[in-house]
């Protein structure tokens, strides 16, 4: 696809702009910002990928993955406002997930150790881990505050912090994994996953594309569970003081 052909699709954006003005939706600015941003971000990433693929240097691959994890952590941390030192906990959970999943994929030689595989797969694993982290923290905070009475009652009966909060941590872990599981259930029926679409458009055999997609699906489901559990267990102690008192994030 040439740049010229691509630029024709800007007509769609122009259409959206016209509609927004006509219906007084007031979205013009957002549409323009979104268009410009996505263009720049993707172009930059495209060139960076090109360089990284060509160099095939572990250092650059590492840097690229690190950058993904930092951005993902930054984003998920917004959901955990009020929890002390939450940033590092998310970072550790996401890193653990990435290392374990890639370790398995590369260690068992399921995927080749080239940037062409490592980077896009990392992107999907880390991206999903980010969403799961955000969901977990959000849900965990609201579970803990709506069940404050039960937590306090357990503590007052001589229970440990862990005993008092475990049922609600489990609820939060469960809830954070539901979207991943649900989307796995309907995959292919509702929408074709991005990676598969990309492979097919680029001319790959659909069966081959499906195999890769399944690989992604399995990795993402496992990594969602891993992220959620690791982050949950790293986070719950932050809801208590050294003297086993409940302090809810504000």
């Amino acid at each position: 696809m040439s740049l010229a052909t691509l630029s024709f699709t800007l007509a769609f954006v122009a259409g959206a702009l016209v509609l927004s003005i006509w219906l007084k939706l007031g979205l013009q600015k957002d549409i323009i910002v979104a268009t410009v941003r996505s263009t720049i971000q993707l172009l930059v990433v495209g060139y960076i990928l090109k360089v990284v693929f060509k160099l095939d240097n572990p250092l650059f691959i590492g840097l690229m993955v690190m950058l993904m994890m930092v951005v993902a952590t930054q984003n998920a941390a917004k959901r955990g406002k009020g929890i002390k030192r939450v940033w590092w906990r998310i970072f550790v959970a996401i890193t653990a997930t990435e290392v374990a999943t890639q370790g398995l994929l590369l260690g068992l030689r399921i995927t080749p150790a080239t940037p062409r595989y490592i980077i896009p797969l990392s992107g999907m694993i880390v991206g999903n881990a980010m969403i799961v982290s955000g969901l977990l923290l959000n849900r965990f905070i609201s579970e803990a505050s709506s069940h404050r009475g039960e937590i306090l009652a357990t503590l007052a009966l001589g229970g440990t912090p862990k005993q008092s909060i475990m049922p609600f941590l489990k609820n939060a872990i469960r809830a954070s994994m539901i979207p991943t599981i649900d989307s796995a259930k309907t995959t292919g029926l509702v929408q074709l996953p991005g990676m598969m679409t990309g492979l097919i458009v680029a001319g790959a055999d659909p069966i081959q594309a499906v195999r890769y997609q399944l690989l992604i699906l399995f990795s993402i489901t496992a990594s969602a569970a891993l992220t959620s559990i690791v982050l949950g267990f790293l986070t719950y102690p932050q809801f208590f003081t050294r003297l086993q008192q409940l302090v809810l994030p504000e």
């Binding site: 009475g149 009652a153 007052a156 001589g158 049922p167």
Partner: peptide
């Protein structure tokens, strides 16, 4: 020991939460 203390000193809340 905190669990021991809380077992020795029982507290009943104004509107107690029942466990499921």
């Amino acid at each position: 020991s905190i669990p021991r203390l809380r077992q020795t000193v029982g507290l009943v809340f104004q509107s107690p939460a029942m466990f499921p």
